[in-house]
């Protein structure tokens, strides 16, 4: 009976693990009704909804203000928890959800499977090297998720808001100010401090046109495949890459194409506790990188940046009139003035 219980539990654990905040489109119009989806399962599919009372915090940050999300704004549909909200003024916005810890009891095999399945490879390695693979586990876990989205064309500084969650990703640059080809740095904080040497998984749903792409799964295995018969125009491509934070808790990765990008990590520690053996804190961050035409463009003629509290836009081509007009006009004017003063004398 106990085996069956653990087996069922393992099935539940292996089916539903990560939590993500996602949007159908990450570029929204100001002052419009929109939805954010809270996925509990994988990035591709939500397996369960999240009860309101599990949410210790649900916040929206935009236009310099943090707004607590009212529980009545959430609704459920097809195993997905939806947040119905109205976008505010233009700017880069952040939404976050932090859940209360829960405990889970797993036999050794289920725990090992879960560590491998979810890519908690450091803990699995520790169990291997310390002959602990046969030990059952009672784990306390909690999940803390964020998404960054762009409202309108104006960039703002809220993208780097620290929501104060036990663990959270904070980009070092506004994802909406960059374009494909750029290296993005993101810092991972645990209890407010940089978390070094931590495994982080980078995933994406790219609107690429490559027919061959390489995947790395959560467990580190890589393969590539081709899409021969798919419509290239509507093609999206998902892949996962394994990264590790440096000494300053920062992961750096190249934004290879436009699309939706996400980071996920599970930081697991041993616990010296009478009832618990482990504690894990889960974090995800989702955002999108556009083609550069929304708020930032180098292929087109304009882009905008934010610097500290200031936000401004540049239009390189149209900024001022062309220099040659100025210089030609200047020469003509100096010549006219010269002849005028020469004659006057």
């Amino acid at each position: 009976m106990k085996k069956l219980f653990f087996g069922l539990l393992a099935f539940v654990v292996l089916c539903s693990h990560d939590m993500f905040l996602k949007l159908d489109g990450y570029f929204l119009q100001p002052q419009t009704q929109s939805e954010i989806q809270l996925f509990n399962g994988s990035f591709e599919k939500s397996e369960n909804v999240i009860a309101r009372n599990r949410m210790l915090d649900a916040s929206l940050v935009g236009n310099g203000k943090r707004i607590a999300i009212d529980t009545t704004q959430w609704f459920e549909k097809d195993s997905i928890t939806y947040l119905d909200f109205k976008t505010g003024n233009a700017g880069t916005w952040v939404a976050g959800v932090s859940t209360a810890p829960r405990n889970i009891e797993l036999d050794a095999t289920s725990f090992n499977d879960y560590l491998e399945h979810d890519g908690v490879l450091d803990m699995l390695e520790w169990r291997k090297t310390n002959n602990a693979l046969e030990e059952d586990a009672v784990e306390k876990y909690s999940k803390h998720v964020k998404t960054i989205f762009q409202v309108g064309d104006t960039l703002s500084t809220d993208w780097n808001t620290n929501l104060g969650y036990p663990i959270e990703f904070i980009p070092l640059e506004n994802p909406y100010s960059i374009h494909p080809g750029h290296d993005l740095k993101v810092r991972l904080l645990y209890k407010g401090k940089p978390l070094a040497d931590q495994l982080v998984y980078l995933g994406n749903e790219l609107e690429d046109k490559n027919e061959t792409a390489e995947h790395t799964h959560a467990n580190g295995k890589t393969h590539s495949h081709t899409h021969e018969d798919e419509d290239k125009n509507d093609h999206t491509h998902a892949s996962v890459e394994q990264l590790r934070t440096n000494g300053e808790g920062v992961v750096t990765f190249n934004i290879t194409a436009q699309g939706v990008w996400y980071l996920r990590t599970i930081y697991m520690q041993h616990l010296e506790d009478e009832t618990l053996t482990h504690e894990s804190n889960w974090a995800t961050l989702t955002f999108a990188v556009g083609d550069g035409n929304q708020v930032h463009s180098h292929d087109a003629d304009s882009h905008s940046h934010d610097h500290g509290d200031e936000t401004h836009e540049h239009d390189h081509e149209d900024e001022g009139f062309p220099s040659y007009i100025f210089w030609v006009g200047s020469i003509v004017m100096v010549a006219l003035l010269f002849f005028f003063f020469r004659r006057k004398k």
Partner: peptide, 25 residues
């Protein structure tokens, strides 16, 4: 002398591409 002035300023006129998105590239 004015012709000389124009001659000297000509490179600036020719070079006057402004700072553009091409510079970003």
């Amino acid at each position: 002398r004015l012709s000389l002035l124009i001659l000297f300023l000509l490179p600036a006129v020719v070079l006057a591409h402004d700072v553009t998105s091409a510079d970003q590239e």
